[in-house]
Simulated scan of single mutants.
Amino acid sequence: MKKEKHLPGILERERLIGDAVKSVAAELRLVDLDILARFIYLEQHANIADLVASSCEMFFKENTLIYGSRADIELKWGEIPNIVLDLEFHHQGVQVFFALALRPLVAAVDVHAISFEGDGHTPAQNTARLIAALDDARIGNDNRLAAAGIAVEAQRHQ
């Protein structure tokens, strides 16, 4: 999806979210691909939600980062599998709906929507609110297996 250039701060916000969830992405990559593929193919959303919750529990406060009840997998002969999970972040009046794409060595986020409770905030103030909400929701340390960064889906489409 190509991001509209007139949306203030969307690329920066995707980068912030990507950096916040890189440890979760690394944990999800530890799940056996056969099991995850089966859950996605059979639409076993409760099982996927459990996997996401257990991958989040060391890095985010409970119920701040959750599975958004949609998953997709691309499996083709001779190609690298691509898993996409919709996730939701809810904390301190900030709601983010985004897709997390998992590949063997890289992950990417693609933000679908961000909403902020309250009126009269500038885009810069809302970005600061997102930073504060992500910082407050996080617990523990980053996963050492997590990549140094996470790709922002929009950057590849410009």
Score class of each variant (00 low, 15 high):
Asp135Phe: 03
Asp34Leu: 15
Val84Ser: 15
Ala148Lys: 12
Ile40Asn: 03
Leu134Ile: 03
His112Met: 09
Glu117Cys: 01
Asp50Leu: 06
Phe59Lys: 03
Ile114Gln: 13
Cys56Leu: 02
Asn63Trp: 04
Asn141Trp: 02
Asp19Ala: 02
Glu43Val: 10
Ala154Pro: 02
Thr127Lys: 12
Glu27Cys: 09
Val52Met: 01
Ile48Leu: 14
Ile73Lys: 12
Tyr41Leu: 14
Val24Thr: 11
Ser23Lys: 00
Pro123Thr: 09
Gly78Met: 06
Ile10Ser: 08
Leu51Tyr: 05
Ala99Gln: 15
Val109Ile: 09
Phe98Cys: 04
Asn143Asp: 15
Met1Trp: 05
Lys5Ala: 12
Met58Trp: 06
Ser55Arg: 11
Asn82Cys: 06
Ala71Ser: 13
Ile48Lys: 07
Ser115Arg: 14
Arg70Met: 10
Asp135Thr: 14
Asp32Arg: 08
Val152Ser: 09
Ala108Arg: 14
Asn126Ile: 01
Asn63Gln: 11
Arg38Leu: 10
Gly120Ala: 02
Ile40His: 01
Leu134Lys: 04
Glu153Cys: 05
Asp110Arg: 14
Asp19Ile: 03
Asp110Glu: 13
Glu88Arg: 15
Phe59Trp: 05
Ala146Val: 05
Ala137Pro: 03
Gly68Arg: 08
Ile10Met: 12
Phe60Met: 01
Phe97Arg: 13
Leu36Asn: 09
Thr122Leu: 11
Val31Glu: 11
Asn143Ala: 14
Ala128Pro: 00
Ile40Cys: 04
Glu62Gln: 11
Pro123Leu: 08
Pro123Trp: 08
Ala107Leu: 01
Val84Arg: 12
Asn47Ile: 03
Gly78Arg: 03
Arg103Cys: 09
Phe116Leu: 02
Leu87Arg: 07
Ser23Pro: 01
Leu36Met: 14
Ser23Ala: 07
Asn47Arg: 13
Gly9Leu: 15
Asp86Asn: 15
Asp72His: 14
Leu51Val: 09
Ala26Asp: 04
Glu62Lys: 15
Ala113Asn: 12
Pro104Phe: 05
Leu7Ala: 09
Gly9Phe: 14
Ala128Tyr: 00
Ala128His: 02
Glu27Ser: 14
Val84His: 02
His90Arg: 15
Pro81Asp: 07
Val111Trp: 02
Ala151Cys: 04
Lys5Leu: 13
Ala124Arg: 12
Ala146Pro: 05
Asp32Gln: 12
Leu105Pro: 00
Ala147Val: 04
Lys3Ile: 05
Ala148Asn: 15
Ile73Thr: 12
His157Val: 13
His91Arg: 02
Asp86Pro: 01
Gly118Thr: 06
Thr127Met: 08
